[in-house]
């Protein structure tokens, strides 16, 4: 007995970090941090140094032996004041559009996801399992395939979207030429009053390409929300509804006070996760609008890619990535606070 307690004590000692555990822990961490040190952490530190230089394509040719100049905060200043020598770059518009893109998408995903989860949860629904299995299809297709296929579907001449609209319009007697819509390239905003152009501020009007990508991302995004909502719905004990019924609650009251109360703690962390994913969603914008027309649908991620891949401004690209890091840090801190606030919400 004494031996067992002694061993238990030894085991506890190991758990709380005796010298042997310490050494074992570091041994377990060595491979990962050796690799990350070389290919993750060093490049990120190098990125910070690069952001203070004017590194360009010519500095990469080792034979020329040119070394980039130290330019201090010039890159940061040029980015923040939108003074980069690339077309259609407006930093403020970029951030506002990027935030709006993420918020509008996640709001739609949430509402649709919950609504369809409720639909599938309806009592006595036939073929429930079949629908549940089929509705997951958008999730299983790689995002870059989704983006390229939908880019073709929004084609002005032969895209399925315009053909469908023309078919529906034909029934109502609207000529097909009306539906020759150039979804991804039309510059004129369809709803100029949404995100207007404040005097002195950036022109935020959303082009048609934004709506096309919103539709695509809605198709792509609601199913996972629905899966999460379904899980939460199934965890609601039936007695709660019965109790509410006895208390004479209307169906709206039951929905608000029972269903939504249970959905909230499950959906909010997922919505935040979805917000970050959508905020950084590269493929749709890159393959559908390419950030256009006139850079109006550019996201931070596509802009960062453009700086490195298209114009080879490595120094500016590095500064841009550092700025992105701080933007994402602020978003993470805010969302963490939000999650914690909702965690204290007890049922």
């Amino acid at each position: 007995m004494a031996a067992i307690t002694a061993r238990l004590g030894a085991a506890r000692g190991r758990r709380s970090g005796g010298p042997r555990t310490q050494r074992a822990a570091y041994l377990y961490l060595v491979p990962a941090f050796l690799v990350m040190g070389v290919i993750t952490i060093y490049p990120l530190l190098y990125q910070v140094w690069m952001s203070f230089t004017d590194t360009e394509l010519k500095h990469l040719n080792l034979r020329l032996g040119l070394t980039p100049d130290f330019v201090g905060l010039q890159n940061y200043q040029n980015i923040l004041t939108s003074a980069l020598s690339i077309p259609n770059f407006d930093f403020l518009r970029l951030i506002i559009y990027n935030l709006w893109w993420a918020v509008s998408n996640v709001a739609i995903h949430l509402v649709l996801g919950v609504a369809i989860a409720l639909l599938l949860n309806a009592k006595g629904l036939w073929f429930r399992r079949f629908y549940r299995a089929m509705y997951i299809i958008p999730v299983v297709i790689p995002a870059l395939i989704v983006a390229t296929v939908w880019a073709h579907m929004f084609d002005a001449d032969s895209g399925a979207v315009n053909l469908l609209l023309a078919g529906a319009g034909g029934i109502l007697g609207i000529p097909a030429t009306v539906f020759h819509i150039d979804w991804l390239r039309q510059v004129a905003p369809p709803m100029p009053w949404l995100l207007p152009h404040p005097s002195g501020g950036p022109d935020l009007a959303l082009p048609l390409a934004y709506y096309a990508m919103l539709i695509t991302n809605t198709w792509l995004g609601w199913p996972l929300n629905s899966v999460v909502a379904t899980g939460a719905l199934q965890s609601i004990p039936n007695e709660l509804y019965e109790a509410a019924e006895i208390d004479g609650a209307t169906s709206w009251q039951k929905f608000r006070n029972v269903t939504l109360a249970y959905l909230r703690p499950a959906m909010i962390p997922y919505a935040i996760y979805g917000f970050v994913v959508t905020f950084n969603l590269f493929y749709l914008t890159f393959f559908m609008s390419g950030g256009g027309p006139n850079g109006r649908t550019q996201l931070l991620v596509t802009q960062a890619y453009y700086l490195v891949n298209n114009v080879h401004l490595y120094g500016v690209g590095a500064a841009f990535a550092v700025i992105m890091f701080f933007i994402l840090l602020v978003i993470t801190l805010i969302t963490n606070r939000l999650t914690r606030a909702t965690q204290t919400y007890t049922l």
Binding site: M50, N280, V301, N309, Y314, A321
Partner: peptide
Amino acid sequence: LPNVATLAPLFV
């Protein structure tokens, strides 16, 4: 940090 934000240093 999304992967795309490490493009510049890894390239160089």
